[in-house]
Design a protein around this nucleic acid. Sequence first.
RNA 1: UGGGGCGUGGCCAAGCGGUAAGGCACGAGACUUUGGAUCUCGCAUUCGGAGGUUCGAAUCCUCCCGCCCCAGCCA
Length: 604
Amino acid sequence: MSEPDTPEAEGASPDREDFVREIVKADVASGAVRNVVTRFPPEPNGYLHVGHATSIVLNFGIARQFDGQCNLRMDDTNPAKEEVEYEESIVTDVKWLIAGWADHCLGLKPRGAVSASAAGDYHMPAALDGAEGLEPFRASDYFEALHAYAVRLIGKGVAYVCDHTADEVDRMRGAPGEKGEESHWRYRPVAENLDLFARMTAGEFPDGARTLRARIDMASDNVWLRDPLLYRIRHAEHHNTGASWCVYPLYDFAHGLSDYIEGITHSICTMEFVPHRALYDWILAALDLPRRLPHQYEFARRNVTHTVVSKRKLLRLVNEDRVSGWDDPRMPTISGMRRRGYPAAALRDFATRIGVGKRENRAEFGLLEHCVRENLNHSSLRRMAVLRPIKVVLENYPEGQVEHFALANNPEDAGAGTREVPFSRELWIESEDFQEVPPPKFYRLHPGNEVRLRGAYLVRCTGVTRDPATGAVVEVRATYDPETRSGNAPDGRKVKATIHWVSAAHAVEAEVRLYDTLFSAEDPEDLPDGGDFTGTLNPASLEIVRNCRLEPALGDARPGQALQFERVGYFVADDRESRAVSLVFNRTVTLKDAWARIEKKQGR
RNA sequence: UGGGGCGUGGCCAAGCGGUAAGGCACGAGACUUUGGAUCUCGCAUUCGGAGGUUCGAAUCCUCCCGCCCCAGCCA
């Protein structure tokens, strides 16, 4: 089959074929669907996380591939759990994730609620691109429409007001495998239902006193078809509609109709909603709607090792101060990953690589890191930073002399230019780059050995200076070869290692935060009986290193700018914590470390 | 014990009756002024299991096994 799809803005992740795309493609080919419209409908009761990211990439990716659109919608039908703070973070995160990739597919709407057409249809298509004052769609902007649809259902005799208590309803629904019991009010006359529903809406009854239910089949094998609840009474203010309502629709009633109102063609959700599909279809079919009906398709939620994505658990981490907040760089939230320095394109690449399927899955965290490294290798500025400094004195380098070396900002990208790095007699090097007694295969600095100082000279270690009291090495002594300026020896001799350095006199100090996975366990939720997931929290997930010595160019690092501290890892200045007095850098991800593997093999 | 979904290498995942893609991880080597990057090579005689249909089965049929979801007035 020919592939009309165009090459990607980011060559690494072409839109992949998956079962959802196959369905969409077939619908377009058959003419069943003309304009593809998907939607991303989070409930604003928490911050978006990696799982949402994969859903965003799927939904916007499809919109993008088929020249359609993807509506951002707040699924805000529960006034008790939702907040504007979350809504704002969701908009920010979605825009950030799709920026430069699918912005043109983002479906938004003008302010305000839907209203009915003359024919009584409720339709709210996305606003034209570039229109003023757009905002996300909101299920709460359909409350009026939803209510009208509920009244129609009552009028058709397929919905009724039920007076049973919550406990009774639960009990009468019956367990899977047995039949349910019909409500005493199941055959209430239409007029009485209409009156009661109006009075529920008017606030005559307390919370929980009555509900509106669909009359479907109490004997169904599918428990979601056993007269599901459509509306409940909640005397609560809603963050969008204020005190206008005291009855609120439930998910199953609101969702399919919201899809219909927006003209969604493919409503993609996760596997746990498979049993709900029959209800989704029932509601839409029962209303005799004039326009094409949306359809629901389900895929398996994507999981990642060493983390959790349940909102309840993420909320606990925040509330119990296990992390500094929703955007703690260790959090699997989009805002956390952004703050940690993960590029949006890397997240999209990750989502594309793990694919879309119906199987349970848990992608390795290492794959996410791979995607981040691959992106950053091409985009980050190289800098030198010594995290745990030890001083090296070049015995034969003139005191007071300063040279400047022009080092490439990115060897992978000649266009990135160079910057000047000062060099002098006293330097800081990484303490782990010096070993007084070198282990096997250790090519870096040790007495008698010669190494290259990146972009500068070859130096040979001549010895150490010790603290007379403790005997500890306080300083490494070395000589440099003036003939090796810029790193090559005229006699052609080779060194096996290149190490990074910072001129002591010119160094900038900073604090660096090293992150590891938040949880030690691959699956933090796979617990021995009765255990709590916080028990698998990684005690070493954050290490703060102070008094790091950085090359001067890092003194004015711009927050958000991707950096590679050569030989150490990728970093980003923290826009929240950095102050003039002490810069703070977050480690995005380490560089791959072949030496660590050798050490491991050597059993150390 | 009802209904539904799913089982392809360590992880993810193509495959849609014609003889097991790809990525990550891992291993070996080359190259290297980042022990980074890059490059090369290796890595499932077999697709949860057992039968059957077929010239031919991961793909079709039957039975079995395993895992997950569903009894919120949450989404």
